[in-house]
Write a protein that binds this DNA or RNA. Structure first.
Lengths: 227, 227
DNA sequence: ACAGTGCATACTGTATACAATATACAATTC
DNA sequence: GAATTGTATATTGTATACAGTATGCACTGT
């Protein structure tokens, strides 16, 4: 958890990113208390930017505040994650619907090459490039929705699933279906067929949902077995 | 903008609510700068709770931050509002769908009486009781969705439309159709017919959308005429 | 008269000091 | 011995002090 010193950004943003990273990588574990003085000393700043960063983490759902006890890292339960995924599915369906109405021809070309890039990444079998190609693909769709509020909300939700992104990508048995799904989504949007596109994204997200929830169930079982 | 002194809440929450109210009622006008010292003196607190409240307002989209210049009240444009309304429609459709699947029989009774309360409020022709009955009605549906994340996100979006709530309620020509729409939604949910319920809420929100956007267009025209 | 520089001012960003409260542990009482 | 209260300590909540930077204005030089 070394503070990424970037003189341009306000300290609160640096702290925010540092803490978020620490939570998503598991360095700060669920239930762990975030104590302002400790964090301030550890990161070499005062309490003020720490407090402001914690407020942001709260809004993203990564920590929960207990009055007069401060913040602690949020437990991720199957319920909380399925809540997030339900909303995310709805927002993704909205995004593709809007994209079908508003996407430009140039963006369709971009989408096609992003789709191809993803296939290349899969052939490379490198998890990192697969995930970034996946993000790039979906980003084009969101941008094409021309709804900045929607983009902002989806980004927030995505944070919460970040730690599970590797899980569903790791399992190489699903790669081929991921490619198929991306192709279906791309084709549907290129044809501006919103109904088809919504069905395609629905399948895509649902598959991720199943994979993520399976992982959590496994984790929770491990946890109870340990205790 | 008198601070509502409630000793139980942290000052940042009191300040947050005070400022939000001031923005929504128009006491703080779009573009107006929120200067920490001035607000601190006016509300009789220090800068710290003011800062924390401003961070929250930023997350709700009510103010925008300019680095090194602080916060200013966000301009509400037709585009930003239609972005919000697009997302809100999707989330409302999700909420009624989930409510159809998860609502209990007791909640259906509650919904029916809330629907009746709304009709009573309309006969009373009192704007305040109409709006609160409307909020109560929709709250039951959101609660029945059993998705706390969804509820949180819808609440955030709703803040932004608050200042226009009176506008679409004020116009008494629409009251009868509001009653009809609420009845259709209630009946569809009571039958747990999610497709019917989604169509009903779609119509309901779209009507609000038209009314709100009409109001904004009128405002923007007034504004340009003045300048 | 106009451009440019320097200074005063006002504000945000950050650090620290102070107040209030919750928690844990020990002492005291029943 | 158990329960309750007191007290120390740790931690958040709040206020204030200090530092750095942007903005506007006056003054100077051409």
């Amino acid at each position: 958890m070394e503070p990424n010193i970037d003189a341009l950004l306000p300290l609160r943003d640096v702290v925010f990113k540092t803490l978020r990273q620490a939570i998503l990588t598991g360095e700060l574990k669920p239930g762990e208390r975030l104590m302002e003085i400790h964090l301030a000393e550890k990161l070499g700043v005062s309490r003020t930017p720490i407090r402001e960063a914690i407020r942001q983490l709260e809004l993203e759902g990564l920590v929960i505040m207990v009055p007069r006890r401060g913040a602690q890292v949020a437990h991720i339960t199957e319920k909380s994650m399925s809540d997030v995924l339900e909303v995310r599915l709805a927002l993704d369906e909205l995004a593709v619907k809007l994209a079908c109405e508003r996407i430009t021809d140039e963006e369709i070309s971009l989408l096609r090459s992003a789709c191809a890039d993803f296939e290349d990444a899969v052939s490379s079998a490198d998890i990192r490039s697969i995930t970034s190609a996946d993000v790039a693909f979906h980003d084009i769709i969101f941008k094409a929705s021309r709804n900045s509020r929607l983009i902002q909300m989806v980004n927030n939700l995505a944070e919460q699933m970040y730690r599970y992104r590797f899980e569903y990508i790791k399992d190489d048995s699903g790669w081929q279906s991921l490619i198929t799904e991306h192709r279906m989504i791309t084709d549907a949007i290129a044809m501006r067929d919103s109904q088809l596109a919504e069905r395609a994204i629905h399948v895509h997200i649902k598959n991720q949902e199943n994979s993520i929830l399976r992982t959590i169930r496994r984790e929770e079982k491990d946890l109870t077995r340990k205790q």
